[in-house]
Design a binder for these strands. Structure first.
Lengths: 96, 96
DNA sequence: CGGTATCCGAACCGATACTG
DNA sequence: CAGTATCGGTTCGGATACCG
């Protein structure tokens, strides 16, 4: 499984973000992610478990140590991608 | 366009990596990327141009400043993902 | 060389309904 | 509450052929 392949799929980053804020149950995750269908949420969670980024205890889902490391690596992208999207928007407004 | 959606698509990271090593023409990129079909390569390059990550001058393709910044942000993932894939492999060998 | 046009099979998203 | 089963509709990847 390629890392960025998984990260690019729908809801993956949202799930990681939500879990970085605290552990959540299946339904809670579903609500936080704009009512994503259970089909997709379950698929994503399975993939994340296979990749050892998310784990599942009796009470709900949580990030593994690896998942938290990944989240830390990901955070620099927050600021950069804002700047980036501004640039792209300007580029489009300039008529490309 | 979501950043990680694009990054997760096939060949995108390969293209960025190749271009970070030096500018290349369409055919050169195609060869470097295991003979990816021109259809896909062209689609990816269009997307990368729209996102202002790659540019095209008379001679070939090159990373924009933004593209180089992205590449710099991406590089920490190299080492981490090796460690990560070892962990996942061990996990599978342990019978999950 | 640098792409575009067409087409097909596979994968993916998501709604809905259902089970334990 | 937690998750599985099924089934469309859409998108994606890629092979091939072709044009300037």
């Amino acid at each position: 499984m390629a890392l960025f392949d998984l990260l690019g799929r729908s809801w993956t980053l949202g799930i990681i973000w939500q879990l970085s804020q605290g552990n959540l149950t299946f339904r809670q995750l579903q609500e936080q992610c704009e009512s994503v269908s259970p089909t997709v949420l379950n698929k994503r969670l399975k993939e994340l478990k296979e990749c050892a980024l998310v784990d599942h205890d009796g009470k709900g889902y949580l990030l593994t140590d690896l998942g938290q490391e990944l989240f830390a690596l990901l955070s620099p992208f927050g600021a950069w991608s804002q700047k980036w999207s501004r640039t792209v928007t300007e580029k489009i407004e300039d008529g490309k």
